[in-house]
Design a protein around this nucleic acid. Sequence first.
RNA 1: GGCCCCAUAGUCUAGAGGCCUAGGACUCCGCUCUUUCAAGGCGGCAGCACGGGUUCGAAUCCCGUUGGGGCCA
Length: 500
Amino acid sequence: MSDNVRVRFAPAPTGYMHIGNLHTALFNWLFARKMGGAMILRIEDTDEVRSTPEALDVIYQGLKWIGLDWDEGPDVGGEYGPYVQSERLGIYQEYLDQLIEAGRAYECFCTPEELEERRQVMRARGIPPRYDGRCRDLTEEQKRKLREQGLESCIRFRVKETGTTVVKDIIQGEVTYENSLIGDPVIVKTSGFPTYHFAVVVDDQLMQITHVIRAVEHLPNTQIHLQLQEALGIEPPAYAHLPLILGEDRTKLSKRHGAVAVTDYEQQGFLPEAMFNFLVLLGWSPGDEREVMSRAQIMEAFSLEACDSSPSVFDVQKAEWMNGEYMKLMDGEDLAGRLLPLLQHEGLMEENPSAERREWLVGVVSLMKERARLLNTFVSWGRYFFTDDYEYENRARKKWLSREEVPERLELLAERLQLLEAWEHQSIEAAVRGLAEELGLSAAKVIHPCRAAVTGTTIGPSLFHLMELLDQNDVIGRLHRAAQLSRAGELEPGPEPESQ
RNA sequence: GGCCCCAUAGUCUAGAGGCCUAGGACUCCGCUCUUUCAAGGCGGCAGCACGGGUUCGAAUCCCGUUGGGGCCA
């Protein structure tokens, strides 16, 4: 009765969620929300070996991080539950009986060793290896004997031997498969667990899924699913197979590509909004030249038909750029809120900062966000805001801190700054420039050494604004410290290869 | 190996026969602003994989080749 869109994201709980899974989830979610439909989360744990219960949390967290929600699932329930396949074992039996009755499923007693052996033979003879149908037509008598020998059986689905199966896919178009080319797949393992093919078909039917949106690696499997559906009298859902996300080497993104887990990107300081935006642009485009788009804009423009069928490479550099764009767009207060946990984790901010201290952080963030790409940037480039314990970079040492004339300048500047009653960027600037003038130097000749001393680096935001955010005495202390170290010859540049 | 899919610069993409002298973005490289650049502004390098058709006309359609990928095992 309902022609409402229902989609599902159906991950296997293997302990981590990678960017490709998230991409699939994202497209499902977008489509569901765009169409005013329902998003279902289903856990496909029929692979007893690889599935772990702890993995559920990883899935929830990954989805929540990027801002996806679901209407039905193991945690929120729903009227088509349970939503974990291992809890649905009884449900599959009914469908299995149906297939057996129709003569489309049968017991197979072949052992893995036998199967492997026969595969070898087929290969050697140049025949594509597939199940040869040996147990297809066993008599009751034969089965009894095999059982008496103590052999275990699995159940196979009898596929069609002739004709073709056509997958009509919203993204991939019509793809035709020759039925004679596939062997009978196992649908129930000796353990009694259904296999992926069987469980998917049954569950999608029972959960009234209207659109199966998944990665294209499942496209070849779809021919089996269609045959299974036909045998069960099930109307197939619409299919949309998303192109794969590849690593730099153009192979399917996997653990060997380094950072692929969603949590890796979270830890690197990616904003979920940016990752969402970036990911949606892999395999889809609004058709115009927009790239940085709000979620509302994306949803407005989104359609499955506009998805591309060719795979795409995950380019971290562009992802970082986009993250930077989002940081610029976000107001300082929001961004400070995102950043705080990270800073606390690094021990750079106290656990319960006062309102004043938070406000100060907003100031720091506002000053830095224009040039930062990741949240982590604040920890690395912005360390000097939070602690006196920062390094003097080689470039800073070489260009300024190791110079003979510098210590005196720093000390003179410290004296001037000490006299300031108002610690504001205007007064600081006046003091710095005033000193330069008196010494007959260009302002830069004071500014640069000062930056090097106070921040340890040669680059960063406006020096005067930055100093304003630091404590006056602290700055003075830093100037004296650098002057002393410099005189002591401790700020000589390190070994060359350091610089990049 | 068999089957299937894909093919616009290093990367993400626009392009659905004439609007293409192929547009945008990232990266990279210059220049510029400035107290610095890792930010801003301006500019530049770089692409329709190849070969055949079809057509008055092809990045766009067809075939083949090559390359890449996925699935099966």
